[in-house]
């Protein structure tokens, strides 16, 4: 079994979440699930995002659809910040000329 996969059962008990929550995230396309011999796993690279989703859900009462919207907007915001940095760097070409 691949080392970087974490069993969903373990995750649910560690984070004290229902398996239905993971299912709902999967159905919305927010996480990817790997099935090996009837056991479900998620890749460890997704743990950080999963923790964020759990916090949004439990701490801020954001529902699954809301989490989807938040993640899409955060992704767009990240792209915009990167674009802003690129433009700022480009602007320097014309400064002090």
């Amino acid at each position: 079994m691949e080392k970087n996969l974490i069993s969903i059962t373990t995750l649910c008990s560690t984070y004290e979440i229902e398996i239905s929550f993971i299912d709902a995230l999967y159905k919305t396309g927010l996480i990817q699930i790997v099935i090996i011999e009837h056991n479900q796993f998620i890749h460890q690279d997704q743990i950080s995002d999963l923790e964020k989703m759990i916090r949004l859900y439990h701490e801020l009462n954001v529902n699954i659809e809301g989490i989807d919207v938040v993640f899409n907007l955060l992704e767009k915001e990240k792209e915009l910040r990167e674009e802003l940095n690129t433009l700022k760097n480009r602007l320097r070409l014309y400064e002090n000329e």
Partner: peptide, 13 residues
């Protein structure tokens, strides 16, 4: 909750 939704670090990286 209202303020947390506004200032939560996950929403303000």
């Amino acid at each position: 909750r209202k303020l947390a939704r506004k200032y939560h670090p996950d929403l303000n990286p």
